[in-house]
Design a binder for these strands. Structure first.
Lengths: 344, 344
DNA sequence: TTCTAGCACTCCTTAATGGAGAGTGCTAGT
DNA sequence: ACTAGCACTCTCCATTAAGGAGTGCTAGAA
């Protein structure tokens, strides 16, 4: 077992993967010998291909059908053979316009980024929403909606609003609500959310406030706001996955779509990829998430006010034009982080 | 051309449609003669079927393949032959629990109803959100988020919250914001939204307020809230449409999914069906909306505080079990209206 | 050695063929 | 007005055959 992969083998592997990405057809020795630019015969190419197959980079769908990259083949291609194509200034401009158009409204910016990812790649695009643990509490309000029902509204420094209906055991007077809000704002405004919920925990344990119930609910709202983050993810262009030529329009396809729609498992995968920095690629089953077999996921974390706040990317077929997709995802992450960060 | 459709023809048409709904297979004369319960020969059945075909109720995919109901066939079946099966008490209970579980939070109730529709029918379920024109304004708040940026928050009597970032030309003091909010609340709280926006229009035309900008923005927010209704619709279970056996997994399917996802045209269709009362059914191209060819839409308007506020329903294959679906949609509309109306 | 050329073999793909089955329309008889 | 019989049509499926693409192997050339 030669540790192999000399220059010629690499060149051929590269040509093969590129050809397969372009056509989706298994590529045979004759075609490869012709197109690769090397001046070697098909027979020689065959020998090299046989070696590459032994080493797990290629496989043949059947005896006489040419060869196709394996997971490992893609992996090596991406890691060692790929030449990234920098994003064209036009695309870059377009991206900037689309993402910047809705600033500073966080939700709209996130949505725009998701749609842009999907449309520019013709694949499914997703954006994991920013974590809000570090967000600063700006304002809290309690509003009586009905006899025993209070609406708690919580606003962060980025203008994000979260609200929740609270049911109380007894009717609350307007004065009580104002008092509660005043106390809350005086005590907590300007502090990060995770600190607020902690402080509230302590506060509630120590003393019996008049307004225990309200405060407790507000705390729960705050906690939910943090926990809810665990779930929130935007996805657009799921239907682009419909014409993955590979997944033979059958049960697998539906599983994939439902899994993506459900988001839960995807979120776990993405959170893991927030730890590193820079673009990250999961080829096929590397994600360890069964329905994604046959797909690749390209992700990049984005930075908000100096902290990694979330991650975005695309889901598409394994044979995607990585050289274009990777810079695009990378740039989108950069632009999104920028658009969401405080305009100085 | 006998004006036809005697008792026997009706009976056979009914049996044929039911058989086709159950199997999805074109049904032939022999099978129909056997299963219909009538004691007539296949040849007789053939004659009747030929008549029904002449009159447009049936058609044959090809010379020797049995017959299939046409649009008109389904229409007649639904209008004249269908015996509704009342919703079982268990299903009714289940529905009630699922929809009631999240009351009184409007958004959650709507979502629960959508999911329930989808899951109980194994088709795509949708809920058009309630129109908010009649909603009463409960509270308005203006919060400074940054130097020249204000968050306007608007709350209705049902606890619905809408918010908007407003950019101002000059920095606003906290006092100004409080003053604006006070004015706004004193003047408009308790009035229906559509009245508020009208009054604001007048107000702004007459006098130059100090806080013109803020008020104008608030008005726009209110108007947007009303306009946005035009777009808001919840859909769940779109993927159930994947295994419509008819649409041959190809381009048509994708068009359908995208059209449903896009919502726009669907919303128009639904708004039209809010005018009538009771369950309404669009078979195939009756909706006049191309991508829906091959599908049926079953809708029912729901009533909120005595007014028709929205419409909900399901989208599925033309051959759906109407006798079960119709009562289910009907009941869901009733329960949803109830869950959203003021608990006395 | 390392590459090339040739050759036999395997396997998929496509098209053509032909029977089986199902259903119809028509006609004649009850 | 209904039924039975019959010839005909059309689809579906399995079988068959030809064609093509690609491989692995072996022997000879650089």
């Amino acid at each position: 077992m030669s540790t192999a992969m000399d220059a010629r083998a690499r060149h051929l592997l590269k040509a093969l993967v590129e050809s397969y990405i372009a056509d989706g057809q298994p590529v045979g020795s004759r075609q490869l010998a012709r197109d690769a630019g090397l001046n070697v015969s098909a027979a020689t190419v065959r020998n090299v291909m046989a070696d590459l197959e032994d080493e797990g980079y290629l496989c043949a769908p059947h005896t006489s059908a040419g060869r196709v990259p394996t997971n490992l083949g893609y992996r090596f291609f991406i890691d060692a053979l790929l030449h990234l194509v920098p994003l064209s200034p036009e695309s870059s401009q377009l991206l900037l316009r689309r993402i910047g158009a809705h600033a500073p409204d966080t939700d709209q910016v996130l949505h725009a980024a998701t749609v842009a990812l999907s449309e520019l790649t013709h694949m499914a695009g997703f954006v994991r929403v920013p974590r809000r643990a570090m967000r600063i509490l700006r304002h809290v309000d309690f509003i009586a909606v009905r006899e025993r029902q209070i609406l708690a509204i919580l606003v962060t420094d980025k203008g994000e609003v979260e609200n929740r209906l609270i049911h109380t055991d007894r009717p609350m007077g307007a004065g009580e609500l104002v008092q509660a809000a005043n106390f809350f704002n005086a005590t907590f405004t300007g502090k990060p959310l995770h600190e607020v919920t902690q402080s509230l925990h302590r506060e509630l344990r120590q003393s019996r406030h008049e307004m225990d119930l309200i405060l407790r609910s507000a705390m729960e709202l705050g906690e939910d706001m943090l926990e809810m983050d665990e779930q929130r993810m935007l996805i657009e262009g799921e239907f682009q996955l419909l014409d993955l030529p590979d997944l033979a329009g059958g049960e697998r396809l539906r599983e994939l779509l439902e899994a993506v729609h459900r988001k839960r498992d995807l979120v776990n995968l993405l959170d893991a990829s927030m730890l590193g920095s820079g673009v990250r690629i999961f080829v096929g089953n590397e994600s360890g998430f069964a329905p994604l077999a046959g797909c690749s996921v390209v992700t990049a974390p984005y930075v908000l006010d100096g902290e990694v706040a979330g991650v975005l990317g695309v889901i598409g077929p394994m044979r995607m034009p990585y050289q274009d997709i990777i810079p695009l995802v990378d740039n989108t992450a950069r632009l999104l982080g920028h658009a969401l960060s405080l305009p100085s």
